[in-house]
């Protein structure tokens, strides 16, 4: 879970139309209910590789099994109070997962207990 383990993937951030000056150009919202998660230009765009549990786990999966996927584009939030609306789960292996404060969909990202930084998975949110 620590940052050291996260491999930095070299991607040219300038190519992304939702990134401006290295930050989120647009408002970040929940994919499902539209709840506002981040204000525009409040978080840094970064690429790193991270395994995150799927938002919708297969009901037929084996008991105790967690289905993950690799996510590699994030918004980096250094101060948790930068968030407009967000939920933090209880701690699992030195990390808290982030969830929508309104509909509880998630994980939409994670919070690193060591650095106290949060990471919002861009593939799990929408821009507005």
């Amino acid at each position: 879970m620590s940052e050291v383990e996260n491999k930095v993937v070299p991607v040219e951030s300038e190519e992304k139309d939702y990134v401006e000056d290295g930050k989120n150009k647009l408002i970040v919202k929940c994919k499902f209910c539209g709840s506002k998660i981040l204000d525009k230009k409040s978080a840094k765009y970064i690429t790193l590789e991270k395994e995150l549990p799927l938002m919708q786990q297969d009901n037929n999966r084996k008991e105790g099994e967690i289905q993950n996927e690799s996510v590699n584009e994030f918004y980096h939030v250094e101060n948790m109070y930068t968030f407009e609306n967000i939920g933090f789960t209880h701690t699992v292996a030195n990390c808290k997962y982030l969830s929508c404060a309104d509909c509880d969909a998630g994980p939409v990202g994670y919070y690193d207990m060591e650095t106290k930084h949060s990471y919002v998975a861009i593939s799990r949110i929408v821009h507005a």
Partner: peptide
Amino acid sequence: LFRFSEDAFNISFISTIGIDFKIRT
């Protein structure tokens, strides 16, 4: 704190871990 709506998310991953706190603006 945790909105128990009828939708599918509540049987998902987040509900099994539980919410510690929320930030609201």
